[in-house]
Structures are given as structure tokens and as C-alpha cells.
Design a protein around this nucleic acid. Sequence first.
DNA 1: CCCTATTTTGTTAGCGCTATAAGCCTAGGC
DNA 2: GCCTAGGCTTATAGCGCTAACAAAATAGGG
Lengths: 345, 345
Amino acid sequence: MAGRNGDERRGQLTLRDVSEASGVSEMTVSRVLRNQGDVSAKTREKVLEAARMLGYVPNKIAGALASNRVNLVAVIIPSMSNMVFPEVLAGINEQLEGTDLQPVVGATYYDPEKEEKVLYEMLSWRPSGVVIAGLEHSEASRAMLANAGCPVVEVMDVDGEPVDVAVGISHWRAGYEMGQEILSRGYRRIGFMTTTSEGDHRARKRMEGLERALGEAGVTLADQIFYSGNSGFAKGREMTNEMLTRTKDLDFLYYSNDLTGAGGLLYCLEQGLDVGGDLGMAGFNGFTLLEGLPRVLATTESCRRETGIEAARIIAGQHVFEPGADRRIELKPTIRAGDTMRPKL
Amino acid sequence: MAGRNGDERRGQLTLRDVSEASGVSEMTVSRVLRNQGDVSAKTREKVLEAARMLGYVPNKIAGALASNRVNLVAVIIPSMSNMVFPEVLAGINEQLEGTDLQPVVGATYYDPEKEEKVLYEMLSWRPSGVVIAGLEHSEASRAMLANAGCPVVEVMDVDGEPVDVAVGISHWRAGYEMGQEILSRGYRRIGFMTTTSEGDHRARKRMEGLERALGEAGVTLADQIFYSGNSGFAKGREMTNEMLTRTKDLDFLYYSNDLTGAGGLLYCLEQGLDVGGDLGMAGFNGFTLLEGLPRVLATTESCRRETGIEAARIIAGQHVFEPGADRRIELKPTIRAGDTMRPKL
DNA sequence: CCCTATTTTGTTAGCGCTATAAGCCTAGGC
DNA sequence: GCCTAGGCTTATAGCGCTAACAAAATAGGG
């Protein structure tokens, strides 16, 4: 009656099957398979052989329940199709490589309600850690994160209060610093093109930082465009054309994204504009795959991979915080001037 | 002694806690939370209220073990950093949206041994389905897939025998058709640049198809370069320079990737070459984010998102195969001539 | 060869949930 | 009032594995 398995039940193999095949107890098989505790070499060999023969694959569901340990890391990002997030994920993946942790990915599509649902779903697997993009979440989400009972790392932003730990760059500062950079090169009539959808908060913070830097020099944005939809070369061309047409004396174009920036760059070069001289241009992110454009677009390297790596280190317990220390890890983005800005004054 | 929980054990809430708080049995709570079976409106309300108050999140580990149902889909891809795979993943994600299935991603880094490990790891969660890139796997991997006890979809290639189902384009055919296209436009001295790492098999199959098409017209490749490392504009420029330098009379450059192709395109334009006239060029994949280059690069649209969508449909049981039908779903890539090839003869 | 220290193996009792069957109501028919 | 039907609720028994402890086998010392 009890424990019948290994036959009718989907033909799923259990420890019991391996145990019977190798003539030792289930516990010993378990030990061998987890490489845990002392087992004699002879027994180990016997068990491994039997497991191999049968094609046994352990059931982690049962294992996790029994041991109260789950090797999954929940990763919650806004979207898969914006290159930025897979890059963070790649960093996480890379760092988790050495450990036995596995990332599980969920997408929120920039929707707080969807985020709540995904988070709930993820937490119901009792993961060993949560990595979630951004610092802005619904109240319910924050409550769930606070009670998750595992490390929670909010990534890609440090301008705010994290639930537990935050890793990323300050987008406000990134905007501010690029603003200063632009001014330091003598540009004053600045046009800004930004997405409304890409994590909203981060793009907004960059814009606020930018405006502050300009404001301190008594400069205001000469023009701006908010777009939605995918960022690509075509979008950059189109917006650039529009902006240059309607606002005549611009001397700098700042894009919230390298891809639109690159599109704009190509457009301006075709128009024969003096890019890197009278007309300055900059993007944001530092996508390496763009290296090789006719000009190197000025940009802010946003440390995406490093963010992922650092987040994973925290989850994996490889980063220890001093008690009382700031639990925000602010990575330093670097501005790459490229050759689309004229020299400093 | 038995069942002590809800206090010392990490403070993790269980059904028992909700049950006590709402004054009904655990079973009833379980029913309410799963929206399953008949529960009176009054009880339901009481339970939901208690769960909300406590901030209870169900434990799917336990649920999965008890019910033998797991809502995870294992997705195994070579890499996160090659744009192609996140795009397939995005398709999967999109299609799974309506269902209660969740993708779990693992990367193999083009290493069959690593693939074996990741697969083993994934299967130990007893997922509801497996989506894995490519048709070439180690024998052990194939055995695991065959015994997975769930739908297995091999994606991005249909040139071979799938374990269960295959979804994707025929890379051989893609290469063959581009070969024909190139010939039909009167090009004869063709240089080919391809990666050695990107899924090897698929790039190889494209090359074989290409060579066959050329061979049928008595043409052989005039030159070729195999590169490894990341595909980007810079790599494309560099290779193009090298190839054009060492082989003088090339009239067509075919790249295994749009990104390197785009780099080559920019290079050739700068050199003042007659791109789209005497010199033809083509890439592969159809990355939409590249729309907006000075010329539209000819390419083969490789149906990445559709592949993901179709794979997810199969896993979700939304695609029913007639018994005996071909279990390979061959998506039809389309050649986009762009304006980097001269008109057909 | 006995006895203890150590290594190796086995037994027992759940992990938190759900399937199943059983129980308890309230209605309704005779 | 008795009995059955049905709606709602609870009790019982695991799911496949591992922690913790118990037992057996082996090794070592006198």
C-alpha cells in the first residue's frame, strides 16, 4: 500500500528505485547523490552505477521541501526585449555559475500590478534570493519583499530607499554628470530625447539630474521629445529629423539610449552636420556592440553586467555587509566622450 | 511535537496559520486559495481576509510535490549575451503570459557538457515542458530529454531528428536560398564571414546550404573568415577590411550575422565602394533594431520570436499534433533584399 | 579477543501541501 | 418523523526526499 512507485506513476523514478537496484537504503542513495556525508567508495560506485543505469534524476521538489533549501534565485525585470535587462541577467548568470544557484526570470512589462503577480508567483517557490529591477514598487510588493525571508536586491537604481539592498548606478547623477560634461564643452542649446516606457523612473531621474546640471548654469532644455515603443536606429533618425527641423539652433542632442543615439548620429552625418564639432551628441548605456560606428558616440557606461554580478554576489552570500553600513552599492558609471563632442573649453 | 510551525521556523507562514486565523480546516483554506471546489461565499471571504492580513504566500514546493504538478518550463539556450536567444525567450514569455506557466532559463555557453549539467538540474524540478536550442545534444542529454516525461521542444533548427518536437527554420535552406538569391543578382566572387561559436551547427548548416547553392552554379566561395568572440560592428569592419585587402575582386560579402554585416556595410560605405551595385552584401537574422542604417542590409529574417511563441504553444498544449504528422514545425524565413544587392538579372 | 572510537549504513519522522474519502449539515419528498 | 440528496467541510494518508538520530560494521589498542 505505502510507497508504491516506480511503476504506474508516470514511470517516474524515485530514490526507492535506485535503492532497490543497488541494494542499499534510500538514505544512502541520497547521500551519494548529494555528495554529502561519508559513504564508502564501493557503495558510492554501486549507487552511481545503478542511478546511471536507470537514468534517475533526483526530484528537487521533494528535496527542497524536506531540506527547506531552494537553489532558485528570482529575477524580476521589466522586459526581455530591451537589451539592457538581458545584460544584467547575463551578469547574474555569470556570477551564479560557480554556485548551485539558478536564476528564474519573470517579466513585468513595466506594470506594477503585473510585477505584484510575478513576485507573488516567484516567492511561492521560496527562492534563495530575489533580484528585482528598480526601487519603485507597489506597497503590496514592498511588503512581500520585506517578508520574503531571503536576500532581496533591488538593481539598476540607487536613488531611493531599498527594501534590503540596492545595487546600480544613480541615474540622477548620471544625468547630472552628463549635463556638466555637455556644458563643459561649451554646448548650450540642448535637445533631449527620451523614452517614456523604459522603466520610467530611471529615465525620469536622469532627466532631472540633467536639468539640474543645466539649471545650475542657467541653461534650460531647448527642446525635448518623449517617445514610446522600441528604441532603434530608425526611431533615433526620425526624432532627430523632427527635432532639428522644429528647433533650429540646437548644438547638442542627448538621447536616453545608445540605439536611438546611433540612429541620430547616422542621420546627422548624412546631413553633413559637423558632429563632434558644432553639434555634440550623446547616448546612454555604453552598448559595446555599437563600437564600430563611423564615429564613437559619447555615452555613459551604465554598468549593467557589473550590476548583475554584484547582485548575484550578494544573493550568494559572497558579499558581507558591515552592520550599519549603507546597504546601497552605488556603481560608478563612466562617461565615454567618444568623438561626438568637441574638446573641453 | 508534530507540525510546530509559524513561530521558530524562519517565521514562514503555512496553511496551518491561515487555517487557525480563519477558524476553518487547512483543506478549506487550500481550496479557497486555489479557487477549486465548492466553498461557501462566507467562508471564502473569511479565509481570503485572514490570508491577506497575515501576508500568506502559498508554498508551491509543497503544493507541487503533493499534486505532482509543476508550472515551470525549462528553457535552455547557449547564451544570454547573443541577442538572438533573449528574443526567442521573449517570444516564449509572451505566449506563456496567458497561462500559469513560468519559464526558467539556463545557459550552456555552447558547451555540451555544460548543457548536460543544466538539463539535469532543470529536469530535477520536474518541469511541465522543456525548450532547448538546437538538435545536437550529447547522448546522455538526448536520453534525459526522451525520458523527461513532459513535452520537449527543440528550437531554432529543423535540420535533423528531434527527440520530440522541433520548431524553427532550416538553416541549411536559409543558406541555400540566400546563395540562390546572390547568384540571381549576378554576383560570383563571394566572400563569407561566419562565427565559429554561435551554435556552431546552425552556422555550419547555413554555410553548407550556401555552398550547395553556389556549387550548383559551379561557383565556389572566393574567400572566408571564421571568427570567434562577440559579434559587433567593430568585428564586421575588421574582417571586411581584412578580406577586401587580401582578396581583390570580391563582388559579394555574406555575413553570418546582421551586426557584423552592419559593421561591414558602414566600412564599405566609408571606403566609397558601390554597395548595392558592384558590391553586394547580406547579413543574417533580421534584427529590427538595425533598421535605420544608411542602407538597408539584405538579410534573412530568422523568425526568432515566432519560434519562441510556437514552442510555448506546444508546451502549453495549445498546439495539437495529428498522430503520425511530422513533428517538425518549419518556419519560413524570408529574405529581405534591402538595398545592398543589385537588381535581379 | 574484548572494548572503545570511528566509520558507514539504516530508521524514523516529518517538510507543507493536496487527493481522496468520509462526515456533517440543511433541504426536500413521502 | 425518517430518509436521501446534495452542498460544504473535515480527517487521513501520502507526494519523494532529507535531518536527526540509531544501529551496525569496521578499525585500533591493550
